[in-house]
Design a protein around this nucleic acid. Structure first.
Lengths: 342, 342
DNA sequence: AATCAATTCCAAACCGCTTTGGATGGCAGA
DNA sequence: TCTGCCATCCAAAGCGGTTTGGAATTGATT
């Protein structure tokens, strides 16, 4: 059943039926009700493809997921972010299209999206230092919002980010206040913008207390359980081991915890850990009482809000770039305690 | 730049330009080259929305992701499956649209997708016992492929699944051969089809050796680190603890391992663990040597293949339902060893 | 030279909706 | 009674492609 057939069955013109269903004022209320009733009766729904062509809007947003040809890691944070963004899109009648492309074709993917008119805007994931995608999208004139920021990029653009620097600064201060002075940082890859900011917060907090960051206690790699474990093992067996760890991801932290326990040390007594908790739905930090002390910020909520910002931007294209900086909570769990006495 | 403008700039009709670009035979080879060159020069790409309306095909596939209003867990396996499927779609010029909907609106979501013509087909995730989605999709006539199977559903449909029963049967036999007789099963929620099949494989293997499955050693819950840990702790402190664990997920297994180590037991010597390894990219089972002995099957590859099956089905709608049963490898890691002597 | 079949191109219809620019009729105001 | 203004509806023109059904040109065949 399409608009034309529905119109015929009602003895009306397609124009009137279309207007009735879309709530335009130039149709009699009685007629409108007749139309709406008939539409429901025939379970008529307007064809998406036709609407898109007629209105010139795609009513869709893309998330481009580059697949690294080398170490092809799908960001575990991604699923929850998508879930959050997806909720927003559903509520607003937008479709979410995921473009999975080899990373060397990412540029072309954005150009395609733009010139074929497949979507009305995009969300940029996992920005890196001096990320080239931002300049590209500005040039293309395709509305976009970045989840995160790109240190080094000049011109203004819309983004939503967690205050990573502040979060890690506070976490470090918290450990310092507990008397820890040898604090290790188990970070993500430092070409990722968030990792750079976290390190900055960490270093700033140490420096402010007159401590000199020890390169041997700063580790940066993919955030997997194995890497976290390996790094922690190495640090713990060193001559002057850390008494506390600041860990960028729950997953790495599972590895760090294992290393700690393997050495017969007790978490929260001998060694403290603070993690950053994205509140991944399949990796809850304890059901009621948090296990890890953590800087916490829901990536799912970030997804919801980033999507909202993008839809705003699409609705008002000449709007100035917006930005939103979310503050992470510092929540106290069972993984931190006073630095052990020597 | 659109088709019409391009045609004018070439002194040709839109018809000819369209045909030239789409490789139809009724256009002179010289003309075709002129057209192709001009298209590239103006970086012309045909408008997606127009193509979709004109051809009546959406060139898109949906994955409906129900968000449980209660325990809203995003399946961690999901990200990698999507990445795999996405690769296939990209290669074939299809878009992947993700519909995130509250689970009580899932039925309506499928109906919408169908009658608005938003997509040409869908992939059904995480089938449950007697999953109603299958009957719905057959009724709607929307092409679909299920990732997994739905025990209890009658009429034929297309699916791709791992041989979960066989995998867990083999894993259990492997443990039995090592002399273990008290083997625990840490399974996923047993309204999920895959969990039912894994339990069946487990029970079958025990029964075949004349052992009676102990209900106290069979656990079923969400597959998180915490739940795995808790279940293992309880079992290990019981009067007659298991000497081996069969664990449905890498994530739960991290918790089980922690429980084992907390008790001062050594993995592979005092207690054995076999996991099912979906080869999640962010949860590698060791870099070179596998840590856990595992039944292994790449969910990413499953995504690739499931998507291929769906595209086939869309291309040949009257094709009989296809199915593909992937066998998991049993790979030997460091987490298994002979049952400890009493 | 006339016929016929390819070859090569084009005009126009169509996909299913939105939207512009009227047309019609009823009613109040002069 | 006539004018003008609403209120209500419709015809037709898009949106940007694809596809059908010729038409014109060319070359081979008789």
């Amino acid at each position: 059943m399409n608009l034309k057939e529905l119109a015929i069955s009602l003895g009306l013109s397609p124009t009137t039926v279309s207007r009735a269903l879309n709530g335009y004022p130039e149709v009699n209320e009685v007629t409108r009700e007749r139309v709406v009733a008939a539409a429901k009766r025939h379970s008529y729904l307007p064809n998406t493809r036709a609407i898109r062509l007629a209105t010139g809007r795609a009513m869709a947003v893309a998330h481009v997921i580059p697949i690294a040809t080398k170490h092809e890691i799908v960001n575990p944070v991604f699923a929850d972010f998508i879930a959050g963004a997806g909720e927003t899109y559903s509520r607003n009648g937008y479709d979410m299209v995921l473009s999975v492309v080899p990373d060397d074709q990412e540029t072309q993917a954005y150009r395609d999206l733009q010139s074929r008119g497949t979507v009305d805007g995009v969300i940029v994931h996992a920005p890196r230092l001096d990320d080239p995608r931002i300049a590209l999208l500005i040039e293309l004139g395709l509305p976009f919002v970045v989840h995160g920021r790109a240190t080094g990029h000049q011109s203004p653009y819309s983004w939503l980010d967690v205050n990573n620097r502040r979060a890690f600064q506070r976490a470090t201060e918290f450990l310092l206040d507990l008397g820890h002075s040898r604090i290790a940082l188990i970070n993500g890859l430092e070409y990722m913008d968030f990792a750079i900011r976290r390190r900055t917060g960490f270093v700033d907090a140490l420096t402010a207390r007159g401590l000199v960051p020890d390169a041997g206690l700063m580790f940066s790699d993919e955030m997997t359980e194995g890497r976290g474990h390996r790094a922690a093992v190495a640090m713990l067996k060193s001559a002057n081991p850390p008494t506390a760890f600041l860990v960028s991801s729950m997953i790495s932290a599972l590895g760090v915890r294992r290393a700690v326990e393997e050495r017969g040390l007790k978490l929260g007594r001998d060694v403290s850990i603070i993690i950053h908790d994205d509140e991944l739905s399949y990796l809850r930090n304890g059901d009621d009482v948090p296990i890890f002390t953590a800087t916490r910020s829901s990536v799912r909520e970030a997804g919801r809000q980033t999507a909202e910002m993008l839809l705003d931007l699409i609705a008002r294209p000449q709007m100035a770039p917006q930005s939103r900086l979310l503050e992470a909570e510092l929540i106290i769990g069972q993984s931190t305690g006073p630095a052990p006495k020597l």
